[in-house]
């Protein structure tokens, strides 16, 4: 195969490009969530958005936090496996990550259902508007991450995976995790 000679440099170039690109993308994502969270914080401190603690299920949210933190761990393990060529381990850890993401989304949907059934809809007040917008936007990001990780998992089965893609997907996934690290105390605890 004549293309074999090109492949290693081509791959490492693609890896460094993708890494720079995803970091720039994450920078704009920080601004997106940052703008939203800054608006919420300001509204909270100004008295506009008062948290209705009685209606939020802290325990369920804590379980969700646990799941997302752990899925971040499995994601980084998936990359470690990919980096040392352990395809089996990579598939396994990616599958765990996907399951973690799906569990997070399922639990979030369960929470939403309960709240809406009690009449706390997005238009039930400023806090609830922010609550649904922030967690909804976050959940959308989780869903995109789940799709990306699932695609990588399938790719690993077909043998088309590239370690750098796992790294890029991982960087995105950890970012989504970090957003939740701030949303959790912001919405449920403080």
């Amino acid at each position: 195969m004549t293309t074999m000679a090109h492949a290693p440099t081509h791959l490492s170039e693609a890896a460094s490009r993708s890494k720079v690109a995803i970091w720039w993308f994450l920078a704009s994502e920080i601004m997106l969530f940052g703008g939203l969270i800054a608006s919420f914080v300001i509204s909270r401190l100004g008295g506009g958005a008062q948290v209705d603690h009685s209606q939020l299920n802290v325990l369920v949210a804590a379980v969700n936090t646990f799941i997302l933190l752990s899925s971040s761990y499995t994601m980084v393990e998936a990359f470690a496996c990919a980096a040392r060529g352990d395809r089996r381990g990579m598939r396994m850890f990616l599958a765990f990550t996907v399951l973690g993401g799906l569990a997070f989304l399922g639990i979030k949907a369960y929470e939403y259902t309960g709240e809406i059934l009690h009449g706390f809809t997005p238009w039930a007040g400023t806090f609830w508007s922010f609550y649904y917008t922030m967690t909804g936007l976050h959940a959308l990001h989780v869903a995109i991450g789940v799709i990306a990780n699932a695609a990588l998992c399938v790719g690993a089965r077909l043998g088309t995976e590239r370690p750098y893609r796992v790294e890029v997907a991982g960087l995105y996934w950890h970012f989504v995790d970090i957003v939740w690290i701030f949303l959790f105390p912001l919405v449920y605890l403080s």
């Binding site: 920078a27 704009s28 601004m31 703008g35 939203l36 608006s39 238009w123």
Partner: peptide
């Protein structure tokens, strides 16, 4: 552009929610 557009996207999401969902941002 990358560093400034995020807050406006957040604002646009909020405005669209106001218009379509009935929130009151």
């Amino acid at each position: 552009f990358l560093l400034s557009v995020g807050p406006l996207i957040a604002g646009a999401v909020m405005l669209l929610m106001d218009r379509l969902v009935g929130t009151g941002f």
